[in-house]
Design a protein around this nucleic acid. Structure first.
Length: 429
RNA sequence: GUGGCUGUAGCUCAAUUGGUUAGAGCGCCGGACUGUGGCUCCGGAGGUUGCGGGUUCAAUCCCCGUCAGCCACCCCA
């Protein structure tokens, strides 16, 4: 079929744009409430900004091409490299910690599925220059509060929090060698989706024995800060490794968000650059993909050639969130709310009065519409109602002679005669 | 990138084992209704059945290819 957008790209008809605007407005409101400042960067970047730090996998999924100036360029697939570049350029001048957010449109050439397109908008919130676990808690709280602002509660969404340092301490405490960690992480990451025998096979291929395999599964099954702390108590360096996670969880409890939060070590996050606490937010039924994901990436800024600042952040896409809101019926319906629809009973003087009235009301900020082509009162009322106008203002020869207009409340169906003078000043009664 | 399922008006679906002008409801436009809406009735527009090829006297239906959508994997945003 022709006349459609490219695969994985969306047309935003008014109804869909209303939802998108609603999402953006809520994102901005909560981010601002947390003291974050908005920034943006270019949607097109030099290709090597991504090839330098990301793996081949990412590079294959890039929308990349050579521009007319013979530069290798790419549409941005994520915001973090741009952020790192911008912060690095002014690292000395910016007061720390930096709290910034952005709502970039990101692009990735992938086979599309539900909740995964080739383009999406993603709120990014990052804190740079703060190593304290309170910063981790702050970001997780912001992510949860965004969902609360959409009227979603703990029965709708959950945050699952883990920490790579904890995972590492537990696994190495079970005498799993450094070089064998990636296999364990891969298995833990998949432990809820892949059958156990397949996972055992994966570990076996990586040289795991019975005892080590059992240890990996034991770690994957830990839930809650209590269990995790207890397990950490049995391994060398465990106490220390668990401290940031304990602090972050305690902070979230103090904020009253405990019922949203679960400590769950199966949250690994794919990206190799995460170094500490990582988290994801899911719909409670887990029917959809993750709504949001993020964590601490302390080494990354230095890797981009900047100052070595600790950093953390998360991304929250508009696609999965939009699906969730539509499912919950939490999406807004109308994009504009008309204050009044003006109706001229006949042409001539009635219309002149309607035009004068319309302009006066618009000058006062009242959204107003009227029929652009003359038709019967019935037709015009129909249009007024279809437009979702709150009221219709009917102007006919009789009313004009009396210096009034009929104001009809379209929801209640009641009518009143209102002096034209009132209407011209923006009053409907 | 790999595999599976699906593809008929804007939307939801029909069309006897392949059978000739592909239908309906909703929506849209117009009318009944000439100073009062959301009802009702009537009429209209809108499809080269995703596209291309093949089999057949005949294809929406069967076969192949392709494109698109969905699902799983991969990967994660």
């Amino acid at each position: 079929m022709q006349g459609k957008a490219l695969p994985g790209f969306r047309d935003f008809y008014p109804e869909e744009l209303a939802l998108r605007n609603h999402i953006f407005a809520t994102w901005r409101a909560v981010a601002t409430r947390y003291g974050f400042e908005e920034y943006d960067g270019p949607p097109l970047e030099a290709l090597d900004l991504y090839t330098r730090k990301s793996g081949d996998e990412i590079v294959q999924q890039l929308y990349a091409f050579r521009d007319k100036g013979d530069r290798e360029v790419a549409l941005r697939p994520e915001m973090t490299p741009t952020l790192a570049r911008m912060v690095a350029a002014r690292a000395q001048a910016l007061k720390k910690p930096i709290r910034w957010f952005s709502i970039p449109q990101l692009f990735r050439y992938e086979r599309q599925q539900r909740g995964r397109l080739r383009e999406h908008f993603q709120l990014n919130m990052d804190i740079i220059g703060e190593a304290s676990a309170l910063a981790d808690a702050e970001l997780i709280a912001a992510a949860i509060d965004i969902l609360r602002a959409f009227d979603l509660g703990p029965q709708d969404v959950r945050a699952r929090v883990s920490d790579r340092r904890v995972l590492r301490a537990l696994l190495m405490g079970a005498e799993i060698a450094e070089g064998q960690l990636p296999a364990a992480l891969a298995v833990i990451d998949r432990s809820e989706r892949v059958p156990k025998n397949v996972l055992e096979e994966m570990l076996k291929e990586s040289g795991y024995g019975k005892r080590e395999t059992a240890a990996v599964f034991a770690v994957a099954e830990l839930r809650g800060i209590g269990d995790v702390s207890a397990a950490l108590g049995n391994v060398r360096g465990g106490e220390e490794a668990g401290e940031p996670l304990r602090q972050a969880i305690a902070a979230l409890e103090a904020m009253g968000l405990a019922e949203f939060v679960t400590v769950d070590l199966t949250i690994v996050r794919g990206l190799a650059y995460y170094t500490g606490i990582v988290f994801e937010l899911f719909d409670a039924a887990k029917e959809l993909r993750a709504i949001c994901g993020g964590g601490r990436y302390d080494g990354l800024l230095a890797a981009f050639g900047g100052t070595d600042l600790p950093a953390l952040g998360f991304g929250m896409g508009d696609v999965v969130l939009g699906e969730l809101l539509k499912e919950r019926g939490a999406a807004p319906k109308a994009s504009t709310e008309l204050g009044a629809f003006l109706i001229a009973v006949s042409g001539g003087e009635d219309l002149t009065t309607v035009l004068r009235l319309a302009h006066a009301l618009r000058d006062r900020g009242v959204p107003v519409e009227y029929g652009l082509r003359h038709s019967g009162v019935r037709k015009q009322l129909e249009l007024a109602s279809a437009r979702g106008a709150a009221r219709a203002v009917i102007v006919g020869p009789e009313e004009r002679a009396a210096g009034v207009a009929v104001v009809r409340d379209l929801k209640a169906g009641t009518e009143a005669k209102v002096p034209l003078e009132h209407l011209l000043n923006g009053f409907f009664d």
